[in-house]
């Protein structure tokens, strides 16, 4: 029973992932690029956190700016994704070029602060 249930769960999970993948493959390529970018940013941030956990937080400002840079970038990328996504009716009138311009501007401002804080 237990075996069958576990196998059924595995199957369910498989089915779920399968459906997720098929659903995701329908996503437009530009959104996939943004997703990839977000993942890149988050993993970079995670590696820094792991490094901090291993060797300690000195120098703390450098750690903070490194991690915040990643998180900030990720958040901005997510914002960009929201605005670019055509299914979001809310931003229907907003051209994706405008959204990209905002993204670039925000990134530049964010990194100016990050660089100042880096020490």
């Amino acid at each position: 029973m237990a075996k069958s249930s576990s196998s059924s769960t595995a199957k369910d999970a498989q089915a779920l992932i399968q459906s997720l993948r098929s659903a995701y493959s329908a996503t437009p390529t530009n959104l996939k690029i943004i997703d990839l970018y977000v993942m890149f940013a988050i993993f970079t941030g995670l590696i820094q956190v792991v490094y901090m956990a291993l060797v300690g937080s000195f120098p703390f400002n450098s750690f903070l700016s490194g991690v915040l840079s990643c998180i900030g970038t990720a958040v901005l990328a997510v914002c960009l994704r929201i605005q670019v996504n055509k299914e979001n009716k809310e931003f229907k009138d907003l051209p994706p070029e405008r959204a990209f311009a905002d993204f670039v501007l925000c990134n530049l401002v964010l990194h100016l602060v990050i660089m100042n804080f880096l020490g």
Binding site: T29, M39, F43, I47, Q48
Partner: peptide, 22 residues
Amino acid sequence: CFLALTLLPFVGFLIGLIYLRV
């Protein structure tokens, strides 16, 4: 070593881009 590790996601990002045929 961790410097190299932080570069890894970037490499992953590039591979992903190729995979997506950007």
